[in-house]
Amino acid sequence: MLKIIKVRLEEVKSAWPKELPNVLWVYRTLTRTPKGETPFKLTYGTEAVIPVEVGVTSMRIEAFHEEGNDDQLKVNLDCLDEVRKEASQKIARYQQKMVEYYNKRVKLRRLNIGDLVLCKVTQATEDPTQGKLEPTWKEPYKVIHYSRQGSYHLESMDGKKLPRPWNIEHLKKYHQ
């Protein structure tokens, strides 16, 4: 079983360099949702005809005239700044919609000065000697200052101020 997995992994590794140009071509010619344009069009000013389309009867292939192609490419390059500007506006609208969607669903939590909280143990704050059996929340701290949305300054129960602010997502209210 292990030998079969190793052989298949080697097959995948050897096939990947051969497939990379095809993968990149697909990536460059697919329309991106936020932009509404392909990376190819944003670079060259025109849509690419993919190899599959060349052998298939389609409107783009039927309407192609080689003698007018160069002139059309020049016009497309002249309009490239407009296409890029429109794509940039589409991205901004998309991002605004995402912000609105997030803000509708987010539940803001707020702590008051004097509240007791537990701090989540992160890689930066954990003791490496403890391993995975270490507690996930540290001792209660007291909220002493609220600096900006979701950022709190804390002090330990003996009055020692913590050196940096903590984000609300790493805090939970301590109930005695």
Rank of each mutant, 00 (worst) to 15 (best):
His65Phe: 09
Gly36Met: 01
His65Pro: 00
Gly45Tyr: 10
Lys74Gln: 13
Gly45Leu: 07
Tyr44Met: 08
Lys74Cys: 02
Asn69Thr: 05
Gly68Ser: 14
Gly36Glu: 03
Thr38Glu: 14
Glu53Gly: 03
Thr46Ser: 11
Lys41Ser: 15
Gln72Glu: 10
Asp70Trp: 12
His65Cys: 05
Gly55Trp: 12
Glu53Ala: 13
Lys41Asp: 03
Glu37Pro: 00
Arg60Cys: 06
Ser58Ile: 03
Asn69Met: 03
Ile61Ser: 12
Ile61His: 01
Phe64Asn: 12
Ala63Val: 04
Lys41Glu: 15
Ala63His: 09
Val75Gln: 13
Pro51Trp: 08
Leu42Ile: 07
Ala63Trp: 05
Phe64Ser: 13
Thr46Leu: 01
Pro51Met: 08
Arg60Met: 05
Glu53Val: 01
Lys41Gly: 06
Asn76Val: 01
Val75Ser: 10
Leu77Glu: 12
Thr57Lys: 10
Val56His: 14
Ala63Gln: 15
Met59Ile: 15
Thr38Ala: 12
Pro51Ile: 11
Lys41Val: 11
Tyr44Gly: 08
Asn69Ile: 00
Gly36Thr: 07
Lys41Pro: 03
Gly68His: 11
Ser58Pro: 02
Gly68Gln: 12
Asn69Gln: 07
Leu77His: 05
Ile61Asn: 11
Gly68Asn: 14
Asn76Thr: 03
Glu67Ile: 02
Val54Pro: 03
Glu47Pro: 01
Thr43Lys: 06
His65Thr: 13
Asp71Asn: 04
Asn69Tyr: 12
Ile50Gln: 14
Phe40Glu: 14
Leu42Gly: 05
Ala63Tyr: 15
Glu37Lys: 12
Leu73Asp: 11
Gln72Cys: 02
Ile61Trp: 00
Arg60Glu: 11
Leu73Ala: 10
Leu73Met: 14
Glu66Cys: 09
Gly36Gln: 03
Thr43Asn: 04
Val54Cys: 05
Asp70Cys: 08
Ile50Met: 09
Ser58Glu: 08
Phe40Pro: 01
Lys41Ile: 02
Val56Ala: 12
Gly45Gln: 08
His65Tyr: 10
Asn69Asp: 15
Asn69His: 14
Lys41Phe: 07
Thr57Trp: 02
Lys74His: 06
Ile50Glu: 15
Leu77Asn: 05
Pro51Cys: 05
Asn69Glu: 14
Asp78Tyr: 02
Glu66Tyr: 09
Lys41Tyr: 06
Val49Pro: 00
Glu67Asp: 10
Pro39Trp: 09
Met59Ala: 13
Met59Trp: 14
Gln72Val: 10
Gly36Cys: 03
Asn76Leu: 06
Val49Glu: 04
Thr57Ile: 13
Leu77Ile: 01
Glu67Phe: 02
Val56Asp: 04
Thr38Val: 09
Val54His: 01
Thr57Phe: 00
Val56Ser: 07
Pro39Gln: 11
Val56Tyr: 06
Lys74Phe: 03
Thr38Trp: 04
Glu53Cys: 02
Glu67Cys: 00
Val54Glu: 09
Ala63Phe: 08
Met59Tyr: 11
Gly55Cys: 08
Val75Asp: 10
Glu67Asn: 05
Ile50Leu: 15
Thr43Asp: 05
Thr46Phe: 15
Gly68Cys: 08
Phe64Ala: 09
Val54Phe: 03
Asn76His: 11
Val49Trp: 00
Val49Lys: 01
Leu42Trp: 06
Glu62Cys: 02
Ser58Lys: 04
